[in-house]
Design a protein around this nucleic acid. Sequence first.
DNA 1: GTTACAGTGTGTATAATTTACACAATCTTA
DNA 2: TAAGATTGTGTAAATTATACACACTGTAAC
Lengths: 245, 245
Amino acid sequence: MDLKTPSASSHKNVSTILKQLESDGIIGISVDCVIFGFDDNELKVLLIKSDLEGFEDKFSLLGDLVHNHEDLDQAAYRILRERTGMDDVYLEQVRSFGQIGRHPAGRVVTIAYASLVNIEHHKLKILANEVHWHRVTTISEMAFDHKTILMVCYEWLQRRIQEHPLGFSLLPKQFSLRELQNLYEAILDVKLDRRNFRKKFFSMDLLEDTGELETDVPHRPGKLYRFNYDKYKKKERKKWFGIDF
Amino acid sequence: MDLKTPSASSHKNVSTILKQLESDGIIGISVDCVIFGFDDNELKVLLIKSDLEGFEDKFSLLGDLVHNHEDLDQAAYRILRERTGMDDVYLEQVRSFGQIGRHPAGRVVTIAYASLVNIEHHKLKILANEVHWHRVTTISEMAFDHKTILMVCYEWLQRRIQEHPLGFSLLPKQFSLRELQNLYEAILDVKLDRRNFRKKFFSMDLLEDTGELETDVPHRPGKLYRFNYDKYKKKERKKWFGIDF
DNA sequence: GTTACAGTGTGTATAATTTACACAATCTTA
DNA sequence: TAAGATTGTGTAAATTATACACACTGTAAC
């Protein structure tokens, strides 16, 4: 959470609230969203510049205090809506951070959420906001413990993307297999064999050929596919997938 | 968290604190420990009987409000120490639960921790407490949303045990391969081939032969092994372990 | 002390999966 | 119409997972 008063959300001064809570010996609760996007074959994260004293020029995640009348998930959705103008995005809780000195404005426990959005959609919804996309792999310093939170979420994503089909949320509804492979290569920082990658995905039988082709590419256009989420949900999860550590 | 005043921890009435917080529009923070044990070839969980009105005869996880001066992890450790008398146990945060109506005594967000203890050790440290071990697979009803929390932690454990060597925390320092296999079979609810299971673990090269044998078994005693955690930590994690969903 | 019993310890053959690798087809641009 | 770039495809080799059986060792019963 950054302490800048969020554009359209709480109308009280968050920092003041926290100080008050702390003097009462009470712990505040916030939600911080790690909003991932994929653009230019790189994994990006949506950040805002902190305006808390001593943290100018540092970037911060998008967050806010949890309201008394809302669930944690609702709070995370609210932040997403306010900051990206987008609804219907992938959102999942990652973990909580509650170190005593983690936030300079008072004792506050934050619940980190990872969110995956189609960055192209977001570009269209230009809100009056000061948020910008940053390359995940080159961010040097951040406010508070937000670098830690970001890195925990990034590592979570690296693992999660291999066992759950959430990567598609970073892509348009229709995508080429090359785009999908670029996504995996960028997030995992590996090179993959194109033929084996295709074979693997086709063997899962969850991609549907849309019948359409890429446009505006300076070479032979690839086929466009769609992920069949319904089919995925119907698959039974196996309990034993092999010890590997 | 159960609202019974914990035996040796907070001296204030937790329920009263929560009501006060709620009337101020403030959210309380608690930690709930899902303490797993393994005994009689079954996965067990340590529970306490709730004494909150309307929840008599229901079981509850062990938890408490987070103190203002302690980290979340510290709070979880504190509960563990108080309830099991054990130090040096495996503890990992699983996720937070913050539904608005989840606790009848007021708005409280809880951070669930999974903990894995050697149940034999715990048996020795008999504290003045009302906690008991229960079979995870046959628990019918629990107080508040604790059944949900327990099941989330159980599913977490089923996955986690296959990708991280935390299962050893449920066993004595020295264990036979049969015990280890029983552990995996019980937690995952599968039958595994004995020879392939052994082959798999030996190929990881993380088990050390202690030179000792089982005692008090009514048949040929098996060799006892020790898990080499140092060796495990030195292994480099691979980023790509294959898409599987 | 001999025997039945129960569970340990081990190896190999087969199947399934993963990896490595090359060339023809298609579209764009010059 | 030719050059360039990327798509689309198959097969062989290596690795990994699975299925399966018999000799060994200690205990307990007689």
